Every structure is written in structure tokens, then in C-alpha cells.
Simulated scan of single mutants.
Amino acid sequence: MRERLVLIVAYDGAELLDIACVSSSLDIANRGGARPPYRTVLATPSGHAVTCDSGLRLEAQVALERFTTPPDTLVVSGGLGHLAAAATPTLVGHVRRLAGLARRVSSVCTGATVLAEAGLLAHRRATSHWMYAEQLARAYPEVRVDPDPIFVRDGNVATSGGVTSALDLTLSFIEEDHGTALARGVALGMVAYLQRPGSQAQMSMFLSRTPGDDLVVLRTRDHIVSHLAGDLGAATLARLAGVSERHLSRLFLTHLRETPAQYVRRTRTEAAAHLLVSTTLPLAAVARRCGFGSTESLRQAFLAYHAVPPSRFRAERRAGGAPLGPEASR
């Protein structure tokens, strides 16, 4: 194989980030040594330039109707124009045609509407931007819509959540094609906080902000997320924040509706969930990296938050299509 051809389908009202997250990630992968390299092509109806949601115009490289080369990966972008795109029979028909030629078929954000209209999501589990997931489920009852995950893989069809989840989905493709090391390198090149597994919630605590942006709470949260394996006891956190334990607890309850200890345990559990899905680390190593004192403590946390032990959590997410790459031996 000389190259991996990735065809991105855009239309008027497409979201620019849905397109750029994919194309930029693949370009960085090429610079990082992807072999065979990716070649990204932007296709639009009739090959016309499209106006994105932001008002910027993008020139097409090819007319969707005239593209006949089998793509390695087909990507349908989302955007506010997704309903009009799904209501265009020629666009939907050619997406269906090209999907039959592609090794992988995917959508970003509301691009799932186009895939659903093409019949490509029937009886499959899929996701979309959490704001539009209910709309998708109502319009296409044969699709098993899950509004929570960042992305979902069902067979050779992948759908992703809102906007920047395109980065997470593309990283999973790079990991599948070229291994974990290159995918992590691309994540660093994109200055992404971490490579998130598809099962992570779109509304993750790693992305959420504190109502009111209280500086003490923000700084304490940043420290917690950055030092999961360290001492995150109430006394230590209060000393670092420069306030009393009682005052720090009051601030957390006001702004996060949970105590510092509750937030620490929940954050460690989410980080452990990420490692369980995205690596092959043994449970003891996951527990150690995330600050749990033992595998039993890890198990109790997963029973509390996910109602299943960590081993079952990993097995279920792996069976659901989340990619796992080789983990460095350490």
C-alpha cells in the first residue's frame, strides 16, 4: 500500500473544526513517520467551494459525484448544515456508494445524520454531539444512539461526538494503523491534554469548568488531575491551596457539589477508566498510576461509579470496539 486515502465529505454549513481536526492530525502523523502515509482529500457536492459555519470558504479538491477511487477511510463532517445535507439525495447516495468501497466509514459530530440517512447506521450503536443525539434518535429509531461517549466503533463504522472529538477518533485510527507510539506523538503535537478513549463521556470532568471559576478550586483541581498518584489528602490539598481544610471543603461543596475527597476519588476513577480502555496495563499498575492504594480500592471505586469491577469494565469496552495498542513495559 503506497498511501492511505482519507476522503472527507463537506457541504455548506459544515463545521471547520470537524474537518481540520482530522486533516491536521493525519498531517502530523505523516510528519511523524506514518508509513504508508495518509493522503487527505476534501470532496464536496459538484466540487464547489463550501461555506463553513464560521463563514470561511473551503475549496474542494474533488467532486463527490466523480470520485471513484476506493478510499481507505470515509469521513463525513458535521455542522449546522447536516439536516440539509441529509435531505440531499445525491449527496446521501454517493456517501452510501463510497462507504461500500471504504475499509472504514466514519462521521464527526452531526455528520452521523448523513450516515443514518444513507442507512449505514441501521441496527448499529452510534453517537453524535450530545446536543443533537435525541434529535438523531427520534429521526432514525433503527439506530441505537448513545449520547455519552466521545466516539463509538461498531464494526467498520465509527461515529464521534461534538467537534473536537474528531481528534480523539482520528487518534484511534492512527493508533489502529500505526501503533500507540505514533498516536501519542500526534496527541502531543496537537497539544492535546490526553488521548481519550471513546468510552469517556463527552462531558468529562477533565474538560468541565468550575461554575464561577473560583481560583482556589481551579488551582486545586489542576493539582489533583496532575498528581493523581501523589498525596491528595484533605490536609495536603488545603496546605497547597493556602486555606483551611474546612474552607476548602466549603468551596468544593459550593462550586462542585462534592467534597475534595469525593472529587479526588471520582477523578482517579475516570483516569483509571481511561487507562483500562486505552492500554493493556495490569490492574495493579493502573491502580498505582491513579493513586489507588491497592487493586481492591480500585475495584471498590469501579463498583461505586460503574457498578462493575474494573476487569469487566475493560472487557466490555474492548468488546465495544475501543482500540488497544501495545503499552510500553514499565
Rank of each mutant, 00 (worst) to 15 (best):
H129E: 04
A116T: 07
A63E: 15
G293Q: 11
G78N: 05
G242R: 02
F173D: 07
H255R: 03
T170M: 10
L16T: 01
Q200G: 09
D53S: 03
F252E: 06
Y193V: 12
L56Y: 06
Y140P: 06
D231N: 06
A63R: 06
A63C: 10
E270K: 01
A284I: 08
G100H: 11
P71T: 08
G33V: 09
T280L: 10
I19L: 01
P326G: 01
A301Y: 01
L64V: 03
L101I: 05
D72R: 02
S226V: 03
P141Q: 04
T88C: 11
H255T: 01
T164A: 04
R35F: 12
A112S: 15
N30R: 15
V277L: 04
T51Y: 11
M205A: 15
E258N: 00
L281G: 03
R35A: 11
R57T: 06
H274W: 02
S278N: 10
D18W: 05
V225M: 09
L80S: 13
V277Y: 04
T254V: 08
E3F: 14
T180V: 07
P326S: 09
A139I: 08
E296F: 08
H48W: 01
I28C: 13
Y132S: 14
R104E: 12
R250W: 12
V9A: 04
A285G: 00
L253C: 12
R317L: 04
H178P: 08
E327H: 12
A29H: 05
G242K: 08
L324K: 03
A34G: 06
V6W: 05
I8C: 13
V217C: 01
T236V: 11
S278T: 14
L120D: 07
A137Q: 14
R124L: 04
R103T: 05
G162H: 10
L188T: 10
V191W: 13
L74I: 03
L120H: 08
A116N: 08
S24H: 02
D177A: 08
A87N: 08
P211V: 03
G155A: 07
G32K: 09
V225N: 12
G33W: 03
H178K: 04
G325Q: 02
P141K: 07
A271M: 04
E175T: 06
R184H: 14
A183D: 04
T159E: 05
L101T: 14
S165A: 15
G179L: 09
T180G: 06
E296T: 13
S204P: 15
L281R: 05
A235E: 14
R312L: 15
T269S: 08
V243H: 04
P71C: 10
L101Y: 14
